[in-house]
Design a binder for these strands. Structure first.
Length: 743
DNA sequence: AAACTCACTTAGTACTGACACA
DNA sequence: TGTGTCAGTACTAAGTGAGTTT
């Protein structure tokens, strides 16, 4: 029994974790989308072989977490493995040092603190060891329960499949299946590794059940008070104008506004409405108004329609001011402070009153959804935060400080009696997070504090130019290479005026692997300031190091470090470029050029250079020769076609032999043209690629799902993008990615 | 062990705003 | 200049599942 409970606990933990991760990695949507569509596809592909389906389902279960963790893993480790070679050797000294000294120090401190806290009371100390044990148990249980779960699922689906005649013979599939099984095992192992890693990572942030340590917000935003209708708008009962009380009028207007909707014709809706409406009436009104059919809301309805129309016809300026006003509200109420970072609140507005519209034939449709008052609202925030102030003349129902839940405010809704919450944006994505970060560093550029200012500029470089973080290095041990934070004055030159641009900074330094980074960027005046009174070998950012930078970043978003930024930017660039460069109607060759161009944009961003291949000139010459030959061939084919046409004409169109001849020549010309085009595209591609290495980004930065999705979407064979070993490496992505995948 | 509660999590739909097109 | 269309967003109803109560 206890065991069972534990396993449940484990599962819960993991799902909780995965949702966390979701949030972090911004894969919430992708995951959901992938899931639904894969369900769809398993429905539609009923002919799919058993094995594949099985595998698919298994994979789906097993990779649910993987999908989330994958990114994180990529973000946290891959780059290190493949790209940070020299620096890792240095970092190896401290095995925990993953993201810079500071983080590890901080982590160490934190750990120490926790330990101290726990040794303070002995029960805690023992419970701690229990806890760790429990965690391990949970792990096992979780996996096994997942297994049984997926087994159940697959069994179910297999049963479903049994009704369908199997179209593909089983035998050859077996071996495939086995291979898949092996792959699965591998994936599973990886997944387990990642789970452990993640758990460790998360465990530090919040201990058991705690969702936050600090939470501050402004409380919910209440909808505006009811504005009574002007006197010239009348409500008629039984033909006579009746001036309604405020409360009754408000509810009447709800109904009047909906008159165009077929809801108002439904008996249930009308009955519910009328019943609730009467509750809002004064006793006189109630005794007068007994039949909804005798009510005439015509003028109110017309007024509402006129209002809608007027809003539509607003001038641009009016719309703009309205928008700005809304923006202000969002700025004030739309964000909260969660631990140390600003988070967007998903629904900071209290739901306005109205008539309930359930979905389908809802028995409660038409009931009045009451106006929520501050007296109905429970506020949840940190004890030591600024407690939100209720609207004047009001008080909150309760203010509590429960850090085991994530909601900021709640109230009980009157239709179903269920609780409604104000919560953080469920899909507060990396994307939006990045926007926030960008906003912030743009603000920080003007900061009075030098260190903040330097950090902002450094972030700008990392974001815009995808510079590496630039950890301090042991002098004399390795080549003198730098990254963003270790840039020195000698590495940049400022030009007040260069090639038509003002304030251009010219970068020239050796980055990782001693690859030269050379770039010219129009930039603000800050840099000049940083360079004042400095020798050429002085640090450009003397008040900044990577740990400070990463500390800042991870305060904006847990787990975010400079290199994550780089990875993120690489992937997002690929996706954007692919979207931009791909033309629907293009043939495969053109598609590939587009893809490579997108890939190239990323490589350029990340400064992935290569020396031009030794054989480059030769192979280009060869290709050119081929192109020339093909051109000649095409010219020949064309003239032949002309000739054939001429003959066909002169001898009358009756001769079928000549007709087929013409057709044949035509296709020959067409074929020649296609091939020529293909080769020319290839030549362009190669030429553009002369000094750029695509492999690094392809293998280590870019989320393969983007590429896989792109291939699927445009029908480009995957082999054209990924070679054999790359396909193996990305098997998981190839398998799980649907064409609508969005990074 | 059924029913209920709470805290999310998912998802359908109405609205908006950008854009292409006539 | 109006109009249809499409994608993205806001809103909130509906679903889920662990935990608790009856």
């Amino acid at each position: 029994m206890g065991r069972e409970k534990q396993s449940k606990g484990g599962e819960e933990k993991s799902s909780h974790k995965s949702s966390k991760l979701k949030k972090l990695s911004g894969h919430e949507n992708a995951e959901a989308g992938g899931d639904t569509s894969s369900t769809n596809s398993s429905n539609s592909h009923e002919k799919i072989e058993n094995g594949k389906l099985l595998k698919k389902l298994q994979l789906k279960n097993k990779t649910r977490l993987l999908q989330h963790t994958k990114k994180l893993k990529k973000l946290l480790s891959d780059e290190d493995d493949a790209l940070e070679g020299p620096s890792t050797s240095q970092r190896k000294l401290d095995p925990e040092d993953d993201d810079g000294d500071f983080i590890s120090k901080k982590k160490g401190q934190k750990r120490k603190r926790i330990k101290e806290e726990q040794t303070e009371c002995s029960t805690n100390a023992s419970s701690r060891s229990k806890k760790t044990k429990k965690l391990n148990d949970d792990d096992d249980d979780y996996n096994s329960s997942q297994k049984t779960k997926s087994k159940k699922k697959t069994e179910k689906s297999v049963k479903k499949e049994e009704n369908e005649p199997l179209q593909v013979s089983k035998k050859p599939k077996r071996t495939k299946e086995e291979i898949q099984e092996a792959k699965l095992l591998k994936i599973k192992k990886k997944e387990e590794e990642e789970q452990n890693r993640w758990r460790w990572w998360e465990e530090e942030k919040y201990e058991d059940g705690v969702k936050w340590k600090f939470l501050e917000h402004k409380g919910p935003y209440f909808p505006p008070e009811y504005q009574p209708v002007p006197d010239d708008v009348h409500f008629y009962y039984d033909g006579k104008a009746v001036k309604l009380s405020l409360a009754a009028e408000e509810v009447a207007l709800f109904f009047a506004q909906m008159l165009d909707h077929e809801y108002t014709t439904k008996d249930v809706f009308r009955e519910n409405f009328f019943k609730d409406w009467r509750k809002e009436m004064t006793s006189e009104e109630r005794s007068l108004i007994n039949d909804l059919n005798k009510c005439d809301f015509g003028e109110m309805h017309a007024m509402h329609k006129a209002k809608v129309e007027a809003r539509k016809n607003m001038t641009k300026e009016e719309k703009q001011t309205l928008k700005e006003a809304n923006q202000k509200i969002v700025e004030e109420f739309g964000y909260c402070l969660l631990d140390h970072h600003k988070e967007r609140i998903g629904n900071f507005k209290i739901e306005p009153p109205g008539l309930f519209r359930g979905r389908g034939e809802h028995p409660k449709q038409g009931m009045l959804k009451k106006r929520i008052q501050p007296e109905d609202v429970i506020i949840n925030c940190a004890k030591d935060s600024h407690i939100p102030v209720p609207p004047v003349g009001h008080r909150w129902k309760e203010v509590r400080h429960d850090n085991t839940v994530t909601w900021l405010a709640s109230w009980t809704e009157n239709i179903q009696g269920s609780i409604k919450y104000i919560m953080l944006n469920a899909n507060s994505k990396l994307k939006t997070c990045v926007d926030d970060i960008r906003y912030q560093y743009n603000q920080d550029l003007k900061s009075k504090q030098m260190s903040t200012r330097q950090r902002a500029v450094a972030l700008y470089f990392i974001d815009k130019l995808a510079l590496r973080a630039g950890n301090e290095k042991e002098e004399g041990e390795t080549a003198d290479t730098v990254g963003c934070c270790s840039l020195r004055v000698e590495h940049i030159t400022l030009h007040d005026q260069l090639e038509g641009d003002e304030c251009v900074v010219e970068f020239d330094f050796l980055g990782k692997d001693s690859i030269r980074y050379y770039n010219k960027v129009p930039v603000f005046k800050n840099l000049k300031l940083f360079m004042e009174n400095k020798e050429s070998e002085d640090d450009l950012f003397d008040r900044l190091n990577t740990s400070m930078l990463n500390k800042h970043l991870s305060s904006l978003m847990p787990g975010l470090t400079a290199k994550v930024f780089r990875t993120y930017n690489a992937s997002i660039t690929l996706q954007q470029q692919l979207k931009e460069l791909t033309n629907k109607g293009d043939n495969v060759a053109e598609m590939i050029l587009s893809y490579n161009r997108a890939n190239r944009a990323v490589a350029i961003l990340c400064n992935h250079q290569r020396a031009p291949p030794k054989t480059f000139e030769q192979s280009m010459a060869n290709l050119q020769a081929k192109i020339d030959a093909r051109k000649e061939q095409l010219a020949l084919a064309k003239s032949e076609l002309k000739q054939a046409k001429k003959e066909a004409k002169s001898k009358g169109s009756s001769d079928p032999k000549l007709q087929t001849m013409v057709e044949r020549k035509k296709t020959a010309v067409k074929r020649c043209e296609d091939q020529l085009l293909k080769m020319e595209l290839q030549a362009t591609d190669r030429e553009e690629n002369k000094q750029i290495a695509l492999g690094t980004s392809k293998l280590n930065y870019l989320d393969p799902r983007i590429s896989v999705a792109w291939c699927k979407k445009y029908g480009v064979p995957l082999e054209k993008i990924y070679n054999k070993s790359q396909r193996d490496k990305f098997a998981w992505a190839i398998d799980m990615t649907e064409e609508d995948f969005e990074f």
